[in-house]
């Protein structure tokens, strides 16, 4: 039997200072001229894709320990690369730069944004969000990014825009799943214009203080922390404002299991399993699932008066 005795100085990975804060502090010191000793302080890793320094926004408290980075970046759902969890190596084939995001449809200012240019025009911050997969596992990740509403401001939606449609890039040379030509590629997800304006709706470009890895949806994805994870489209190439409710990828394939709203609700089981609890990646602990994944105070008002809709699928 292997007996492992930790020396007194060891701490759990979740207790370590997040990399983004570490580098953020160095950037702040450098900017204030406090480094002072003539020793250069690097503000980010050499060779990394540009990711602006993102200070953590303390407003969003996960009330749970961070998931270890290794767990969050090696257990992934990304159907374009396969229907299993170990797609992280295959996903490295998806080029991350240059990357452009088109915003169009019912907007005053449609445009195509080079991602790095876009990041210079929006306030980037870090938020620690809980992420709840429809498959009843969960993780807590420090995401870097900007509010979706900032992108909406740049595009200026017309009054007739009612929904936002998110399209994932379709790159056949990198994504073996696209060989299955019978599926309705590209991966499409959507939300209402009110949901897009909600402060929680977050465009993610980084995780754990680094550029968002492709297996987690890099270089840019959307994240709705109160919805099941499949609603948060990855590797976005196109955002379309529309007056038609988008029919999502999974809605077209299995509409009885995956709907448009997909808000987290422990009292409404998936047709094939319970949603009452969730397994935390890394610790494998099972904890009770919360309504709206615990973000009810931010989002429950969005659904008041919504009648005749399956809000929980």
């Amino acid at each position: 039997m292997l007996l492992r005795k930790n020396p007194g100085w060891t701490i759990a990975e979740r207790q370590a200072t997040p990399e983004t804060l570490f580098f953020g502090r160095r950037a702040a010191l450098a900017a204030a001229g406090l480094a002072g000793t003539g020793v250069a302080l690097p503000t980010r890793r050499a060779g990394a894709v540009d990711l602006p320094t993102a200070m953590r926004n303390p407003r969003y408290r996960p009330e749970r320990a961070l998931t270890a980075e290794r767990e969050a970046t090696t257990y992934n759902n990304y159907y374009e690369f396969g229907s299993h969890k170990t797609i992280s190596a295959a996903a490295q084939r998806l080029p991350q730069r240059p990357w452009t995001l088109r915003v169009e449809g019912l907007v005053e200012r449609p445009g195509e944004f080079a991602l790095d240019d876009l990041l210079r025009r929006v306030p980037v911050e870090e938020r620690v969000y809980r992420h709840r997969c429809v498959e009843a596992w969960a993780m807590v990740v420090p995401w870097s990014g900007f509010q979706l509403s900032e992108l909406m401001k740049l595009a200026a939606p017309l009054g007739s825009a009612k929904y936002v449609r998110f399209e994932t890039a379709a790159v056949p040379s990198a994504m073996p799943g696209l060989r299955q030509s019978w599926y309705p590629w590209p991966y499409v997800e959507g939300c209402t214009i009110q949901e897009a304006a909600n402060e929680l709706s977050f465009m993610v470009v980084g995780a754990y203080g680094k550029p968002l890895p492709p297996q987690n949806g890099g270089p840019v994805r959307i994240h709705f922390p109160w919805k099941y994870g499949f609603k948060s489209g990855k590797s976005l190439a196109r955002v379309v404002l529309t007056d038609q409710r988008p029919k999502s990828f999974w809605e077209q394939i299995q509409p009885q299991e995956y709907g448009f709203w997909a808000n987290v609700n422990p009292a409404v089981p998936h047709p094939r399993w319970s949603q009452a609890s969730e397994r935390l990646l890394g610790t494998e602990e099972r904890v009770p699932t919360q309504l709206f994944n615990g973000y009810g105070e931010f989002v429950s008002g969005l659904y008041e008066g919504v009648q005749g809709e399956r809000l929980w699928f």
Binding site: Q180, W182, Q252, I253, Q254, E257
Partner: peptide, 18 residues
């Protein structure tokens, strides 16, 4: 097969790959 049952291949793929 997808036309016949849209969920069939997804279920089969998940089962085989996982």
């Amino acid at each position: 097969l997808f036309r016949y049952d849209p969920a069939l291949l997804n279920t089969a793929q998940a089962g085989i790959q996982r």
